[in-house]
Design a protein around this nucleic acid. Structure first.
Lengths: 224, 224
DNA sequence: ACATTATTTTATCACGCAGTTATAATGGTG
DNA sequence: CACCATTATAACTGCGTGATAAAATAATGT
């Protein structure tokens, strides 16, 4: 496994395949063809076949893909068959929203602890997870084999905390802070910049309106 | 403006340009060259030049780009110079996290109301925004010229609410529910699937580890 | 029950287009 | 007038799509 480089575009699509396959399993579907799946997911069947082929022949001619097998194989590829210990830095609404999302644990993401600087929050327990002082961060990361840190703190504090996490040996940062982080090459940063997402939405709304205006102009141009 | 089709990839990068330009403005920087910006943002200067050229000559030879001018122009392109009214459906932690993020309002996103089905939450006020019953959703959307709805509800409820929003005349859905939504062509859906983001992170962490194992193997192979 | 044919569906190949990077040409700056 | 940095153009890379070959399943007839 993990022989040749797999394109970024394919990896980005895998979680969506995984989600749909999970839903199919729940519905008791045992096998599915790329064509059926393409209808469901609204992507071309060709793309599905090519994507899945990156990881070796999961499918069988004349049969299709075995849903359960494919599901577990994708889990292996994504690494969600293993356990990942994570901590949440920032116990505000966003941090608590993540802590409260139970399904992460089904995927092997185990929230070991939460951290904050607000003394009023420290000591509280959210879904069995204690909120601790950031002073204890390094020690906790080392003691609990924490791989991943979710950063749900203001951008001003983010770079400093990121540095501390890196020095404590963290492998990946799930960054919700509205800033870019600079980390060594062997540390992964996955950005979730909500404000950027909202701006993209804004663009699409506006260009949609502009287009409809254009169409109206074209319509009235016809009538001349 | 809005003459020829601009590629999706360029639009996706614009918010990041916008953020960095904002930071430069705060630092009192008046002009910047594509080369300096490329160093700061860690993308190629060539890409920056080509991206910005999509929207007409913002730059000047021998001078660079005027930071403030570029900032306001990108704002126009993204449509964040106008006001967008939005509602949040789902007043849980995630919904409240969005409601509490003040900077959205600076970008013209005005949160008009929040909605939930939980009677205990209805009537509460978060940052001056009242939490209402979803029964009042349609009327509120129509009365308040709401364009955008943030969906921070469980996936089981999402499709039904999405339908209701569409019928009420919403223009865009910012979808945090872990499911795909089916809407008419003239309604924009921007997905924020956190679980998928976390899976991508997981993949990168694992492939990073595998690669370092490979390197060690290569190292030991050398020593034979 | 077996051989044969038709059907289904994947795997692989090849092409075209879009996105990215590099280079040449142009036009201000100082 | 030399230099700088953009604009415009060209080369390259990679992704997505469609077409074809191969392989298994399902159907048919003897």
């Amino acid at each position: 496994m993990a022989d040749k480089e797999i394109s970024k575009a394919v990896i980005a699509r895998l979680p969506r395949y995984y989600r749909h396959l999970g839903e199919l399993m729940e519905d008791g579907v045992e096998r599915i063809s790329s064509n059926e799946l393409s209808l469901r997911m609204k992507v071309t069947a060709s793309q599905i076949r090519q994507d899945l082929n990156n990881f070796g022949g999961f499918g069988q001619q004349g049969y299709g893909y075995n849903v359960k097998y494919l599901y577990t194989e994708i889990a292996k590829i994504l690494g969600i068959d293993r356990q990942h210990n994570l901590v949440i830095i920032g116990a505000g609404n966003l941090g608590q929203a993540i802590a409260n999302y139970a399904n992460f644990e089904k995927r092997g993401f185990l929230i070991k602890g939460m951290f904050d600087i607000n003394p009023r929050l420290i000591g509280l327990v959210v879904r069995g997870i204690e909120i601790r002082s950031v002073d204890d961060l390094e020690q906790f990361v080392k003691d609990n084999d924490v791989q991943i840190a979710a950063l749900t703190i203001p951008k001003t504090k983010a770079p400093e905390i990121a540095d501390r996490l890196v020095r404590a040996g963290i492998k990946a940062i799930w960054n919700f802070a509205h800033t870019d982080l600079t980390v060594p090459d062997d540390v992964v940063v996955e950005n979730v910049h909500l404000s950027e997402s909202l701006m993209r939405l804004s663009y699409r709304v506006c260009s949609m309106q502009d287009n409809s205006v254009d169409e109206k102009q074209r319509q009235s141009a016809k009538n001349i």
